[in-house]
Simulated assay, not measured.
Amino acid sequence: MNRFPSLLLACAMAILHGPVAASTAAPAQPPRVLLVVSSEGRDQGRTRPGFEMDEFAQAWLILRRNGFEIDVASPRGGAVEADKYNATESFNAAALADPLAVRALAGTLPTAQLRAGDYRGVLVIGGKGAMFDLPADSALQRTIAAIWEQGGIVAAVCHGPAALAGVRLGNGRALVEGRSMTGFSEEEELLFGKRWAKEFAFQLEPRMRELGARWQEAPLMMPKVVVDGRLVTGQNPYSTPALAEAFVRASGQVPVAREPWRDERSMALVERHLQLRDTQAVQQLARRPADYHVELIGILGFYQLQAAQTPVAIADALAIMQLARPHMDEPRLDVAMAEAHWRLGDATRARTQLRAVLEKQPALEEAKALLARMQP
């Protein structure tokens, strides 16, 4: 190709405008944020609870997808251990396939060495280990306070808000005072924290309320994210994707479009089913059951029934279990559905369902015990 026309154009521009100075502006650096995890974990959570890998993986993937550089820190630094998790779940598999994520978890930064000025924001990952070492970490508290005071974003999910309990700002007030937030609820702790909760220095929801937080929550284990300016909190593990995307928005960016993970799709399906109470969700699940986490849906209904105190909550739990039941052959789910019918006043239907269960499994103690409870 003849290059003379372009050379002539360049010469003409130089004559007209003078020499063109070379650009000295440094390329824009991608925003750097901090993920914090507990150092407590041992033996996949059997002898000491650690952090939730599901939460870490989803937060990591969404933040990386949106262009953030990430440092991972823990109170002691070095390698950290998550509680037992499913490594084949798509988000966990993707995070484990990322050498940066694997390296970050194998060599976390000690919180005592952090410089708040390096970070646009901080996101604290949950897991029961967070209730043990994060609230006692004064270096972490100073870092979070400094990030907040410099205009950064402070986020936490599940038990992660425990790290905020000791954070005081320059005016002496607790960071959470007067601010709307959420976290692992007292109701959720009663059902899922039985082994370790008695050893916590405090219970999360009551402590946040004592500090003056305006606590909000969704029904048991349903997604919930609360944004109060630069404070972004999520209730439980299933809140993590929405929390991470809220973090991105709080930083002034629009989250990159992505395909929801199957847990997200499952929770969204449950929410639509409870709102509409029609056959759409049933039909959708029947058409593409592999797109959803059916066991998660069934277990969600099962545990919501354990926590239900009102007829509306019992009916919601029953509706969730009925959604999963055609795709989940679990006799204990049938027993729970029978209990829901009984608690809603339909003892005849409950007995019929229990007898059907006992015909298949005569030794099922849960079914026999519920029948005995139903005797007048």
Rank of each mutant, 00 (worst) to 15 (best):
L285S: 01
V335A: 10
E199S: 14
Y303C: 08
M13D: 06
M374K: 06
P135C: 11
A162R: 00
A308G: 12
G234M: 03
A130G: 09
V37Q: 01
C158E: 04
G67V: 07
R64G: 06
A79Q: 14
S180W: 09
I144A: 02
G301N: 02
V282A: 09
L100T: 15
L243T: 04
D71V: 11
A246I: 05
L164T: 01
A59G: 02
E189R: 03
A106R: 15
I144E: 05
R168V: 13
R355H: 15
G301S: 06
R179A: 01
G160W: 04
A28S: 13
V72T: 08
W261Q: 04
F192Y: 04
E271Y: 05
M181A: 12
E40A: 02
P241T: 09
I320C: 05
R262D: 05
A324M: 12
E40M: 09
N92S: 14
G166Q: 06
V294T: 05
G193A: 05
H293K: 13
T352F: 12
G212M: 11
P237E: 12
P135T: 07
K360S: 12
D137K: 10
L164Y: 01
G121T: 08
A156T: 03
M328Y: 08
A21Y: 01
C158R: 03
L134V: 07
L9A: 10
E295W: 06
L169C: 11
W261F: 11
L100M: 15
M267N: 06
S138V: 15
L344C: 06
L35M: 08
E264D: 09
A315F: 05
A139D: 10
L243I: 08
V226G: 00
S138T: 15
Y238V: 08
M321D: 04
S180C: 14
D228R: 05
E359G: 12
F302D: 02
A338Y: 00
G151P: 04
F184L: 10
A155T: 04
V335N: 05
A26Y: 06
Q150L: 09
W342E: 03
L354Q: 07
A136M: 13
M13V: 13
